[in-house]
Write a protein that binds this DNA or RNA. Structure first.
Lengths: 252, 252
DNA sequence: CGTTACCTTGATATCGTTCAAGTACCGTGG
DNA sequence: CCACGGTACTTGAACGATATCAAGGTAACG
C-alpha cells in the first residue's frame, strides 16, 4: 500500500531531494507516535530543555510570558513543524510551547540529530534549513508588529498560515481550518481581544475573507496580499540551491 | 606579548571551553580583516547570499524594508557578532545588513563552517549556539513589540545593548557608546521618530538614564530592569551544559 | 439548566502618529 | 571667516489607531 508521506517529509521534499536511506532515517525518527491533548505543555519557559519534537498533527503555540502575565505568541507550530532543534543547546527554555488542539507528535533525543550530521548530512541540512526558517518567520512577524497596522498584520498572518498549511496539504480552495480563538490571535498580533475582533470583522466586511466556525476562507488572495504587502519569499519554500546542496553532499 | 582575544572569542569563551587548536581555527577565520565604512551594505534584501561574516568592530543593523518604504530594524550587530551563519542556506536574503559606523570585519565561505563540523565540532557548536541565540533575541523583541509599551521597549533595548556590549568589554560603569540616531531607534522599536524622542526624554527625566552625544549611561539598572521586565536569561550568556558539550565532543 | 468559554458591540480613554516649526551642530565652498 | 545646506534633535498641537471598560449574546457541556 502506498504510504502517505508525513507532513515533515512533504516539507523536506520541497527543499532537498532525499535518498531512500535518508527518508528511512527520518521515518525512524517519526516512528514512535505520541498522542497529545489540547493544553498540554510541550516546553515550559524557565524549565530545562529535554527533547526535540516533531508535530505530526494538531496546532501548538510558542509563546513568552512577561512577569505581569502579558503573553506574546511568537509563532504557531503546524503539522510538519519541529521544535527544540537548536534551542536545545540552551540550558533553559526562554519560551513555552502548548498544544492548541489534540495532536500527535514524536520526540527524540538531540543525539539523534547529532548522529544525522555524520551519517546523513542532507537530513541535517534539512533540519538546519527549517530552524533557519523559523528565525525568518519570527523576523517577519517582528517587522509586522513594528511597522504594519492591525489590519495589515491580520491579513498577513492569514496568508502565512495559508501557505504553511498548503505545503502540507491542509488547504482546499483557499480554505483552511484555524483552531485559534480570537484571544490567541490577539496575543499573536499584539492587539487587544476587542480590536482583534473588530479587525477580523473589517476583513470580512471588505469581502476579503469568510469565517465559519474555525474555517477561514481567503476570498481574494491578490487583494489580501497587496494590502498586507505579503511576499512569500520569506517562507523560503523553494529548492535548496546546488551550491548549498553540494556543501552537504561532499561533507559526507 | 599577550594578544587580546577578539570579541568573538570573548563570547565563545563564555559558553564553551575551546582548546588551543580550536582557538587557532577561529583565529584563522578572523585573520583576514576588511575595513568597512558606515553605510556599506553587507547583505542586501532580495539578492543572493554569499559569505558568512564576522564583525570585529563597529555597529551594523539587520533590517527589512516593506514595499512602501517602511523599514523595520530586526536587530543590531555588535562587535563579536556573526551574520549569515544559517541564513546562508537560503537562496535569497530576506533582509539587509548595513554598517552604521566604520568597522572591521572578516568574511569567509560557508564551506569553512561546514569544515568545522567535521574537524572541530565544538567550534560548530559555538556558532550554532549563537545562531540560536539570534533567534532568541528576535523573539524577545517581537514579544516586546507586541506587548510592551514604548517606554518599556526603550528601557529594554538599552538594557539588552548594555549586556551584549558588556561581554565584549565595551562598557564602563554602566556607560556605553551607542552610535544610533533616534530614527534608527524608532525603526527598531516600532515608533515614530517623534515619539522615540519623547520617550527618551521621559527616561532621562525619570533619572533612569543619561545621554551625552552617543554615550548612554544607565543610572539605575535595577529600576530600569524592573520597569522593562528585563530578564537577561534570554541572552543565554552562560556556559553550555555538560549534557550538550558532551554531544559535541563525542561527536568528534 | 446553570456555568463556562468564546464572540460581539458601544462608549470612552489613551498612547502614539502626523503635521509643523524651530534649533543646534556640523562640514564645505566662496 | 562666514554663509550655506545637510543631518540630527526637539517641541507643540491636532488627530487617529488601538486599548479599556462595560454589557450582552450564543453555543457547548456537565
Amino acid at each position: 500500500m502506498p504510504q502517505q508521506n508525513s507532513p515533515l517529509l512533504k516539507k523536506f521534499n520541497i527543499v532537498i531531494s532525499l535518498g531512500p536511506e535518508e527518508e528511512d532515517f527520518i521515518k525512524e525518527m517519526e516512528r514512535e507516535r505520541r498522542p497529545t491533548t489540547a493544553r498540554t505543555d510541550l516546553v515550559k519557559q524557565g524549565e530545562k530543555y529535554q527533547k526535540i519534537g516533531l508535530l505530526h498533527s494538531g496546532w501548538a503555540i510558542r509563546y513568552k510570558t512577561l512577569s505581569d502575565g502579558r503573553r506574546h505568541i511568537i509563532n504557531f507550530l503546524l503539522p510538519g513543524d519541529a521544535y527544540g532543534v537548536f534551542s536545545n543547546l540552551f540550558e533553559m527554555a526562554d519560551h513555552s510551547i502548548t498544544m492548541l488542539t489534540d495532536g500527535v507528535l514524536s520526540v527524540f533525543e538531540p543525539e539523534t540529530l547529532v548522529e544525522s550530521y555524520k551519517r546523513f548530512p542532507k537530513v541535517a541540512a534539512a533540519f538546519t534549513w527549517f530552524a533557519a526558517r523559523e528565525e525568518a518567520l519570527i523576523a517577519e512577524h517582528a517587522a509586522g508588529l513594528g511597522q504594519r497596522t492591525a489590519f495589515e498584520r491580520l491579513a498577513h498572518i492569514l496568508l502565512e498560515l495559508y501557505h504553511r498549511l498548503d505545503v502540507v496539504g491542509l488547504t482546499l480552495d483557499g480554505r483552511f481550518s484555524m483552531p485559534v480563538t480570537q484571544e490567541i490571535l490577539a496575543d499573536t498580533l499584539g492587539l487587544s481581544l476587542v480590536h482583534a475582533n473588530r479587525t477580523l470583522r473589517k476583513l470580512r466586511e471588505a469581502n476579503l475573507i469568510d469565517t465559519d466556525g474555525q474555517t477561514v476562507t481567503l476570498k481574494d488572495y491578490d487583494r489580501l496580499a497587496k494590502l498586507a504587502d505579503f511576499d512569500e519569499s520569506y517562507l523560503h519554500l523553494r529548492p535548496m540551491s546546488k551550491r548549498v546542496e553540494r556543501q552537504f553532499t561532499t561533507a559526507a
